[in-house]
């Protein structure tokens, strides 16, 4: 290889590595947190984050610097998780929660009912209980709450990360929040908290 070609290649490599340092590694904590809530354990979460960055390396030429790095990494992680997860659950008698979510999805916005969860009922629940309740949601419902409420992605970003239309993002979020409130309500009631209105 000529010196010129060598220099050009080295420049490209250092430029690509700089993308990792400047744009991709800063999201490692958020990726790990997402991975942990998807897998429930730190070993799987570590593997998933590692796999995400290695895939990002493989696809680095398709990444446009300065665009939404966080959403790009989350999409890679979500796909890696779904592929691995599906491999694990696609066994006879196992339930595929993706199918359940798809079955319940609707693009119309005719839903209006919120599960009424008053603050006095959940304010004394601690972080462990809310995390457990969230982790007990089917994966697609858990994912959408993590992306929207915990990571603050917009509906459009969530739509791209999850490969679903924006109408489905809205309806799935609505269902996910209601399911979570139902779970929190039963936790709170088990712990002896009562909805004051029912007295």
């Amino acid at each position: 290889m000529t010196d010129l070609l060598m220099t050009m290649k080295n420049n490209k490599v250092s430029k690509d590595y700089k993308i990792f340092e400047d744009e991709l590694f800063p999201h490692a904590d958020a990726l790990y947190n997402f991975a942990f809530h998807l897998t429930y354990n730190s070993e799987d979460a570590n593997d998933l984050v590692q796999e995400t960055y290695l895939k990002a390396f493989n696809f680095i030429n398709s990444y446009q610097t300065g665009t939404n790095a966080k959403a790009w990494l989350f999409k890679i992680l979500k796909n890696a998780f779904i592929n691995e997860y599906r491999k694990k659950v696609k066994q006879p008698n196992k339930v595929d929660y993706e199918d359940i979510a798809a079955y319940h999805d609707t693009d119309d916005d005719s839903y209006i009912g919120f599960v009424d969860l008053r603050q006095e009922l959940f304010q004394d629940l601690i972080g462990d209980e809310i995390t457990t309740a969230l982790n007990n949601l089917p994966v697609d419902f858990r994912t959408i709450i993590l992306l929207c409420d915990i990571e603050g992605f917009t509906y459009e970003e969530i739509s791209k990360i999850m490969d679903i239309p924006i109408g489905t993002v809205r309806s799935r979020l609505h269902r996910a929040r209601n399911m979570l409130k139902d779970k929190l309500k039963s936790y709170a009631e088990k712990l002896g908290f009562k909805d004051k209105r029912s007295k």
């Binding site: 790990y32 947190n33 984050v49 603050q119 809310i130 995390t131 709450i145 929040r177």
Partner: peptide, 22 residues
């Protein structure tokens, strides 16, 4: 409820060792 979720859901941090490995 939304505020409660933002504040109470545990946020895990990646270990420095893992980031350095990656």
């Amino acid at each position: 409820f939304k505020q409660y979720l933002i504040e109470k859901v545990q946020r895990r941090k990646i270990s420095v060792v893992l980031v350095n490995n990656i």
